[in-house]
Simulated scan of single mutants.
Amino acid sequence: MTLSLWLSLLGASTLISFTPGAGAINTMTNSLNSGFKRSIWGILGQQAALLVHVVVVAAGVGLLVSRSPMFFTGIRYAGAAYLVYLGVRLILAKPQSPDEIDMRGQEPAFSMFRRGLWVNLLNPKAIVFFLAFTPQFIRLDQPALGQYAVFITTIVIVDILVMWFFFAAAAKSFSRFTATERGQKILNMTFGTLFIFVAALLAFIH
């Protein structure tokens, strides 16, 4: 991959990562509930999903998904349903007492990783997006493996940096709200509603 092409990939990846979505909301929620440092586990889960998407597209399955309305619709609604579930769970979550707040961050790392994985994995539009995005940076007259390695490494590193040092860090500014039950209710309602809003976009705007 030439330097100019890689710089184009870097710029595009950065813009895409800064676009708010379910992954950003999940990252901010993890940062609030489990702390800035431990939010990395959810971010890594989201990156694992990106790897799966790229492999799927590289294998040609993405083309099948994009051309099969029934398959695409099924995954789309499954993804929307999962986001609604996360949103409703947040909205109905019981506020924590001061003692419970001091014990935050005890959610297992694997649980956070798994949730991040499913948030990004159950998004068929990501497959279609990569289907359109990937060919712009892969040259057929050059070895594919090296190009895909540079492609996915760039996307993953950029997304980790943006998610952790922008969205997770931004959530720290809301941490004062978690000190009171009222503040927790407001935050849970806000982020829960955002999850449901993104689910609606995923389900009805296509």
Rank of each mutant, 00 (worst) to 15 (best):
T154C: 01
M28Q: 08
V162S: 02
L32N: 03
G183D: 10
L44C: 13
I138D: 07
A12L: 15
L187P: 04
Q47K: 12
A169F: 12
W164E: 01
I196A: 04
Y82E: 01
V61Q: 09
F130S: 11
H206Q: 14
L117H: 00
A109Q: 06
V150Q: 10
V52W: 08
V156W: 00
L161P: 03
L86N: 05
Q136I: 05
T193N: 11
D102H: 12
V162G: 06
Y148L: 11
A126M: 14
V61L: 14
T134L: 14
F204N: 06
A80N: 00
I152D: 06
P108R: 14
V88H: 01
I91W: 10
F197I: 13
G21W: 01
T19A: 03
G60E: 09
F195Q: 03
M189G: 15
H206C: 10
F177T: 00
S4M: 00
T180K: 14
A168W: 01
Y77A: 08
H206W: 06
M28R: 09
R38H: 09
L5F: 13
A58G: 09
M70F: 14
K94W: 11
Q106W: 07
W6N: 13
M28S: 04
Q147W: 01
G35A: 03
A22S: 09
I160V: 12
S8N: 14
L32S: 01
